[in-house]
Design a binder for these strands. Structure first.
Length: 570
RNA sequence: GGUCCCGUGGCUUAGCCAGGAUAUAGCAUCGGGCUUCUAACCCGAGGGUCAGGGGUUCAAAUCCCUUCGGGAUCGCCA
């Protein structure tokens, strides 16, 4: 196993630390970071200037003079520019990268972590189809899953199905009032009746008692009510799963909230919380005092009518998850900030493992926030239909001679890739406003750009193979790859491991999106300036073909990590 | 009113947690490039008081305080 950039950085750290030690200095932070001026740069001279009682520039020179490089190392040259110490990777690094990619193929750049992670994402209420806000959760979550798996973790994904909340009670009630349109996709048909029911509840508030009654019945185990809830949930979840699958998102399991009531886990955890002495009675409701965790207000864990709340069931769910994995990660919308903090505090108070929470900010519409209840939303299906239609027209325009199946397949990859990329490339803490024009515009450097680069690499290899110029099994000499664009491309590919590492550590999936674009950019530069198939000398052509193959592998890896299809032709 | 997140060229956006070298890309605009491995591409140009103000520091887009603007949230919804 090779970890190119990570290993390079390790060697730089060692060399610098040894030099500093020999000069009698000690520092805990070398200020190392990738830089536009070098493969890695150190700002350590700034940090030590005061201690060393000399100016940073002189100190940098002194440090570099004291560096002793062992042989067969990845470091090429070390130079100072003013107070900066710039370190470039050497030929070994470049050559080893090419060899490592050819050897490891789709496993390149991963498997340096271990342990089991249980990651929960999407978990939208089954009262309608996923909308363009929900899929931000799905795409961030699924990309994180792919990153963590790539990093080496065993990851189990769950969609937590709310099958007993107030919304579901309303859906089950709605199904008894209105006809269910079986000609529609089931999640959309559920939304139809749910919206109608909400109109009635708004106009006739006394009907709310019927909803309350259903909730009490379902919690007390009334078979008929349970079945009506299950039916409603089943319809919605079936449709939601189809949408997720269409976006290359899948879950390992769909645990239901009701399971934690029925197996007694909710009552057990309520007793555990009571045992901490933090609970009290507040007008008949059971509340928990979390003031010492920084929460001014108490947390309600049981209604005055004795029924449980989302929070209570969620506590039981997390207790169960905690027993099955080393780490838990929840991807949640910004509306869950407060409640997830309270959840963590409560789990901590009863000595249970806490989840790591990834929060993303809301997607709204130009006219305001989305609401399934009010029918104000743009469904993911609608977005995907429209973007695939656009993508089809685009493929048809560019490749009119191809079969319809080809056009459909490419349109699907390009359309879904564009949606996933546009969503994942923005950091989760930015709130966004959905814009049709922008969402359907893939004439920009997004997923299609990266996919196109991959298809280009495939095409070069195909052409060379057809002309009998390429033999993948042939030994090649990476040291012949000396053009600037070749070295840049190789160094960019070498960074893949550290990008996965950083993404997995920070749980920030947008970093890999940006990396993939830069990688495609580096490949396009190489493509533009360096001939491959038409290279004159056999050994150079062979090395370049191997490089194209490397680029194909790493581009496909990066796209796969983003959950985006990698077409061989488009 | 309290708390949290965001505010970077006309638009979208990276960098902010771990402060340092001319602030990153894309879209749009303008100019150039297909008889050459797919031009869903490449090259070049213009465009920025990093929301405003104060502070810390040798050094602030980055840290602290404050104002403004946008979003979220403030118990028996989820």
């Amino acid at each position: 196993m090779f970890f190119l950039f990570i290993e390079f950085k390790k060697q730089v750290t060692e060399a610098l630390n040894n030099a500093l030690k020999s000069l009698g200095y000690e520092v805990d932070d070398l200020g190392l970071e990738p830089s536009q001026h070098a493969d890695i740069a150190s700002k350590v001279a700034f940090r030590l200037a005061a201690q060393a009682k000399c100016n940073p520039k002189e100190l940098a020179d002194k440090i570099v003079a004291a560096i002793k490089l062992p042989e067969s190392i990845l470091i090429g040259d070390i130079k100072t520019v003013g107070p900066y110490i710039n370190i470039n990777a050497g030929r070994n690094y470049v050559d080893n990268t090419v060899k490592a990619i050819l050897e490891e193929k789709e496993n390149f750049g991963g498997n340096f972590c271990e342990g089991k992670i249980l990651l929960e994402h999407t978990s939208a209420n089954p009262n309608g189809p996923l909308h363009v806000g929900h899929i931000r959760n799905s795409i961030i979550g699924d990309t994180l899953v792919r990153i963590l798996k790539k990093a080496g973790y065993e990851v189990e994904t769950q969609y937590y199905v709310n099958d007993m909340g107030r919304q579901i009670a309303i859906v089950s009630w709605a199904l008894s009032l209105f006809e269910f349109d079986t000609s529609k996709k089931p999640d959309h048909a559920i939304a139809d009746v749910y919206i109608k029911a909400n109109v009635i509840l708004n106009e006739e508030p006394d009907k709310v008692a019927e909803i309350d009654k259903r909730m009490q019945l379902v919690e007390s185990g009334d078979e008929e009510t349970i079945q009506s809830f299950d039916k409603a949930v089943e319809f919605a979840v079936t449709g939601i799963k189809q949408t997720l699958l269409r976006m290359n998102v899948s879950h390992d399991s769909f645990p239901h909230e009701s399971g934690f009531i029925r197996n007694g886990a909710v009552s057990r955890i309520v007793e555990e919380i009571k045992a901490t002495g933090r609970t009290s009675d507040d007008n008949g409701a059971l509340v928990v005092d979390l003031e010492d965790y920084g929460f001014e207000k108490t947390l309600v864990i049981q209604r005055s009518d004795g029924t449980s709340l989302y929070t209570t069931r969620d506590l039981a769910y997390h207790e169960w998850k905690g027993e099955r994995a080393d780490r838990m990660i929840d991807v949640l919308g910004a509306d869950h900030k407060l409640i997830s903090g309270q959840l963590k505090a409560t789990l901590n108070a009863i000595g249970k493992k806490e989840p790591e929470i990834v929060i993303f900010e809301f997607v709204s519409l130009p006219e305001g926030s989305m609401s399934t209840r009010r029918g104000k939303f743009i469904s993911a299906d609608d977005l995907l239909d429209q973007i695939e239609e656009r993508a089809y027209a685009e493929v048809d325009k560019r490749r009119p001679e191809m079969e319809d199946d080809f056009k459909k397949e490419v349109a699907s990859m390009v359309g879904i890739g564009a949606v996933r990329y546009d969503i994942v490339k923005v950091s989760p803490e930015k709130s966004t406003v959905f814009d049709w024009k922008e969402a359907l515009d893939f004439e920009k450097q997004g997923a299609p750009f990266i996919q196109y680069s991959h298809a280009r690499a495939c095409n070069i290899l195909k052409k060379a193979e057809e002309e009998g110029k390429w033999n993948p099994a042939e030994e090649i000499d990476p040291s012949l790859l000396t053009e600037d664009t070749e070295v840049d491309l190789i160094k960019k590919m070498a960074a893949f491991d550290s990008i996965i590492d950083v993404c997995a550590r920070d749980l920030k999936p947008h970093t890999i999106a940006i990396y993939a674009r830069e990688l495609a950019d580096a490949f396009n530069q190489f493509y533009r300036f360096v001939p491959v198939v038409s290279a004159e000398e056999d050994d150079i052509r062979a090395s370049r073909l191997a490089l194209v193959n490397c680029a194909r592998i790493v581009l496909a890896n990066a796209l796969d990590t983003l959950g985006i299809g990698a077409p061989e032709s488009m």
